[in-house]
């Protein structure tokens, strides 16, 4: 079953083949979890959204119409995350918005001294990036999506995604220069 495509596995699961789901779950278990964990304010939120996303997949009454299963799964997770963000922050989030602003991420010298581990600094820096930028970065790193796929998922232009990614990388490079 490991050699089967995601789409075949999902079709089999929809017909009642539980092991097909287990294979799919193992394929995207960690990447989906990390995508949510890095996007959410807390691990508790990430856990909840993670379970919700898989639950939507499990109980889906119709097969997804376009794209791959992976895109379908991450789209569900992203939509859930946006809904939560809107509820908690009570502000509208526009997908078309091009966020060119870069927050000032520079930690204080004391904080920098405390961050021994580059990976911890990476996580911290990701959390401090504007949401749209970190989202584009995470979809690329965790989902392995191309610019076009991310643009389609986020429903913005390809150039917009490219711009968001460029700003994200620039900022990460700047802060993590000594780790690279």
């Amino acid at each position: 079953m490991d050699g089967m495509s995601d789409e075949v596995l999902f079709r089999r699961y929809r017909k009642g083949d539980a092991p097909a789901f287990e294979t799919l779950y193992q394929r995207y278990r960690q990447s989906l979890y990390l995508f949510l964990l890095r996007s959410c304010d807390s691990s508790a939120d990430a856990d909840e959204l993670y379970q919700d996303a898989w639950s939507r997949v499990i109980t889906a009454t119709k097969p997804f119409r376009e794209g791959s299963f992976k895109a379908y799964l991450f789209r569900i997770a992203r939509n859930l995350q946006i809904d939560r963000y809107r509820r908690e922050h009570l502000i509208p989030v526009s997908d078309d918005e091009v966020v060119a602003q870069v927050s000032d991420p520079s930690p204080t010298p004391d904080a920098r001294a405390n961050e021994q581990d580059c990976t911890e600094r990476m996580k911290r820096q990701l959390a401090e990036l504007p949401r749209e930028q970190s989202e584009a970065f995470l979809l690329k790193e965790e989902g392995g999506f191309t610019l076009e796929q991310i643009a389609e998922m986020v429903r913005v232009g390809r150039e917009t995604i490219k711009s968001r990614l460029r700003y994200a990388l620039k900022q990460l490079r700047k802060v993590l220069e000594d780790c690279l």
Binding site: R29, L34, L37, C118, T119, M122, L126, E141, L176
Partner: peptide
């Protein structure tokens, strides 16, 4: 940067 990020992927 990508390698550094991948190294941070520890949570499950």
């Amino acid at each position: 940067l990508s390698a550094l990020y991948q190294a941070s992927r520890r949570e499950q």
